[in-house]
């Protein structure tokens, strides 16, 4: 990463949008995309519930911002932002309810030595995982919080998004 100058951020939302709050990470990406334009260093990807197909995107970024539903003790709709020191190990705990292993993809990325230098998780605790296309009230509110949190983290890297008119 040549002296740390080449910052490339991947904003990756994952989850299944057919299972209500399970797809909250994807919904955050949709909102960011609809409301802001981003500098070329930032890539937004709706990863759905994909696995190995996501590997090429990891290879092309220095910072991975992962947006996902997480398992947690906190009340539904809580947004937790954390930096993952050892992402594959962390994901072995199965924090995400997805059946398709993002954990495996991260482990493979680590195996291939293409894990992004920094992985930050924006996790939202889901309320409703039943079949359906809309978010629960708590998670809809959390989307707004996550949008704001992502914009702040990007600003901290010197990357500013501008609102679409």
């Amino acid at each position: 990463m040549g002296g740390g100058v080449a910052v490339r951020v991947l904003l990756l939302g994952v989850g299944n949008i057919l299972l209500s709050d399970e797809g909250v990470g994807v919904k955050v990406i949709e909102q960011l995309e609809a409301r802001y334009s981003f500098p070329p260093e930032v890539t937004l990807v709706d990863g759905g519930t994909m696995g190995l197909e996501l590997l090429p995107y990891f290879e092309e970024c220095s910072h991975l911002f992962l947006l996902d539903a997480i398992r947690g003790e906190a009340p539904p709709g809580t947004l937790e932002v954390s930096e993952l020191a050892d992402p594959p190990a962390y994901f072995r705990q199965k924090i995400s309810p997805h059946q398709i292993g993002l954990s495996e993809v991260l482990a493979v990325a680590s195996l291939q030595e293409c894990l992004p230098a920094l992985v930050k998780l924006f996790g939202i605790v889901p309320e409703d995982l039943s079949t359906g296309l809309s978010l629960s009230a708590s998670n809809a509110a959390a989307v707004e919080a996550a949008v704001a949190a992502v914009l702040i983290e990007l600003a901290n890297l010197g990357l500013s998004a501008s609102p679409r008119v």
């Binding site: 299944n16 057919l18 759905g48 519930t49 994909m50 696995g51 997805h98 398709i100």
Partner: peptide
């Protein structure tokens, strides 16, 4: 657009 989300592997 919806059916491609019903399976995590086979979109």
């Amino acid at each position: 657009l919806f059916t491609q989300r019903i399976c995590g592997v086979c979109t």
